Simulated assay, not measured.
Amino acid sequence: MEKKRAQHNVIITGATGMVGEGVLMRCLESEEIDAILVINRKPCGYTHPKLKEIIHADFFDFSAIESQLSGYHACFFCLGISSVGVDGEVYYKMTYTLTMHVAETLSRLNNDMTFCYVSGGGTNENGRLKWAQVKGKTENDLTRLPFYQVFNFRPGFIKPLPGQKYAHKFYKYINWLFPIGRAIYPNGFCTMAELSDAMIHTFKHHNERRVLEGKDIIALAKE
């Protein structure tokens, strides 16, 4: 008798950004994902039988929607801002404080949850660059929360999926660089499909806490 696959219900944040949208698109196509909840400040523009959307403005206070956040097995956290031109205190609040509030809430409500955090290449809490320090602290403190698993993804350059609405416009001018960059420095280049599939494949792992660089993401995507 064939063993029945476990239920895989996921929460995705950042679905109105390039990475979150790509992960959402891939999850909608995946037979491994049974139900998807996206939490956004504005509608993501996607509809699907297994998709539910919550529009919520304040990501620093989830008390009004907590009753809808239980029963999920993973969070694919794709929400974030660039540090370019952003005040240091604002960047810390939007990167560390916001992420930790969401993570602490979800870990309290879902005791068997896997948390996948999209970080960045060069992240290091003890590094010289302020953004790398903030991202590194976020990564490290996420691993201390009572999640079943935590995976910190450092994808570098990401090639968008065809048809993405929220991909940065400049990608259509620089995508031709992808195969060259991948050949020269494979650890810094992955596709959106690889990043998304790697997140989905974390369900095949058990009680892990890992940092995934580009090569690790590509390998996990192929499992």
Rank of each mutant, 00 (worst) to 15 (best):
N9E: 10
K172A: 09
K135P: 02
N207K: 14
M100E: 06
G122A: 12
R182E: 14
F153K: 03
K4E: 15
P160M: 03
T13K: 03
E208I: 13
P179M: 08
L212W: 08
Q7G: 00
P179V: 07
K215D: 14
E125W: 00
T143V: 11
V150L: 09
I174S: 03
L161H: 08
F189D: 00
G17Y: 02
S82K: 10
G45Y: 08
P155V: 03
V211I: 14
T16N: 12
M100N: 06
P162W: 01
I217E: 03
F115I: 08
L109M: 12
Y96G: 03
L195Q: 05
S119L: 07
H168S: 13
P186N: 06
C27T: 05
M94E: 15
N207C: 09
H168R: 15
S119P: 06
C78P: 02
D61R: 09
L98V: 04
L24E: 02
E223D: 14
M94G: 00
T16C: 08
K222R: 15
H168A: 14
M25H: 02
D87V: 01
P186K: 02
A103G: 10
P160A: 05
R108D: 12
G22R: 06
G80T: 09
V19K: 05
D61T: 07
I12A: 09
I12F: 08
F62V: 02
E2W: 05
G17D: 04
D34N: 15
I65S: 09
L212M: 15
F203N: 06
I54T: 10
H8W: 12
F115A: 09
A15G: 12
S70Q: 15
V10K: 03
R209G: 07
G122M: 10
G121R: 11
E2F: 09
I218E: 09
S67N: 14
E29I: 03
D141R: 12
Y72F: 15
G20T: 07
A167D: 00
E223K: 13
V102G: 02
Q7E: 15
L24W: 06
L51T: 02
R182M: 05
K93Y: 04
F62L: 15
L177R: 01
M18L: 11
K52H: 15
I81G: 05
C78H: 03
P146R: 12
V19M: 13
I158R: 01
G88A: 13
S119R: 04
I184F: 12
L145T: 10
Y166Q: 13
V134H: 01
N140T: 14
I217L: 11
G88L: 04
L195N: 04
N124R: 02
R144V: 01
R108M: 11
D61Y: 10
A193M: 08
C190W: 00
A6M: 13
K169A: 11
Y166V: 00
E53C: 08
H56G: 05
P43H: 13
F157P: 04
S82P: 08
L212H: 05
A183K: 14
L195T: 05
F76K: 00
V134M: 03
K159W: 00
I158S: 04
T47R: 12
Y185L: 12
